[in-house]
Nucleic acid binder design. Structure first.
Lengths: 189, 189
DNA sequence: GTCTATATTTTGATAGAC
DNA sequence: GTCTATCAAAATATAGAC
């Protein structure tokens, strides 16, 4: 592991602040104070506040895209692929809890990178939807509105960042398994 | 129906803008422009930007609290109560899509009302959790971590505002039924 | 790599005319 | 109820010394 650069440290600390108050409510002075330096000094490492947000969001979005490509090429059936998607979200979310908040809530403040982000997001959802439709066709999952299924599962997975930090006692493999049970098999006995 | 007051109109328009960019990124000048007046004129109807956020969030939070009390006193079993909670969220979310965005994403910018909001939220979650635990005890639902079940269901319901406006062709009763199927019975065949 | 000092813009809000 | 004019504070960002 390479040691963290000053720029990476700024991005990491910024993500934490963005999770608490949102991108727009965090000032460069807030960030500088959290870093223990003056606001002007931040600009020796980054070009703008925007750049910080870009780095947080685009890195994560590309990680999800890469993960989805692996799921697609796994050769598993629909239920198997859904399991892998759940594991993908649990893994990325637990590794970058703060960044996930920006990905979910502050993407609209992207500027130059907004179109690119939205393209990745739409493609991800298209891939997810295709897996569900294939599962309906093959008879693996129930024939219910795939839009509502996708919304329900993806919303839960996208919000894991809100919840994981509170439950440190739960290990991540166990969390994946429990989510798998609940999201796929339901809670009805 | 009483006609909408100017104050109510400001709150309604503000909620729409808050959904697009978040509370902190919307200026009083943005709001004034959307109303077709000057920023200074807003202050003839409201005391501060804060007051607008308070009105949006606290009204909704109290609506959910009142709805939960009705569910509790309904005398239904666990599954029946969960059905009613789903209907509650579908109804309130569809009636106030824009306000739901603030409730979910901008509550941390409450000031005097923050403690009160957090009390309502914790109580709501306690009531929800109690229903799930009672369902496990009575054997109606599977004996899986109730925290994860609550997180999964509640996160989906709280995010309905993101999704309802896109799917106008789906009627609300049908949406409730579909969510009920997916959240309770799962998607596995 | 961090500092002080500062330029420029934007912000929430008020005063007072109409 | 809306306007123009304006204030005071706070924002992002830059210049240049150390």
């Amino acid at each position: 592991m390479k040691p963290e650069t000053r720029k990476e440290e700024i991005i990491r600390v910024a993500a934490k602040l963005f999770k608490e108050k949102g991108y727009s409510a965090v000032t460069m002075r807030d960030l500088a104070k959290a870093m223990g330096i003056k606001a002007a000094s931040l600009y020796n490492h980054i070009n703008s506040k925007q750049d910080i947000l870009n780095a947080i969001i685009i890195n994560l979005a590309e990680e999800f895209t890469a993960g989805m490509k692996l799921v697609q090429s796994s050769g598993e059936n629909c239920i198997g692929k859904l399991n892998r998607i759940i594991e993908l979200h649990v893994r990325i979310s637990s590794q970058n809890i703060y960044g996930m908040a920006s990905l979910n809530n502050d993407w609209m403040h992207l500027e130059e990178k907004l179109d690119y982000y939205q393209r990745l997001r739409i493609d991800y959802e298209d891939d997810f939807r295709a897996i569900l439709k294939q599962g309906i066709t093959s008879g693996e999952i129930v024939d219910v509105n795939p839009e509502v299924m996708m919304f329900s599962i993806l919303t839960t997975l996208r919000s894991l960042y809100l919840w994981i930090p509170k439950k440190e006692e739960l290990n991540l493999e166990e969390l994946s398994n429990t989510l798998n049970q609940i999201l796929i098999k339901g809670i009805n006995k």
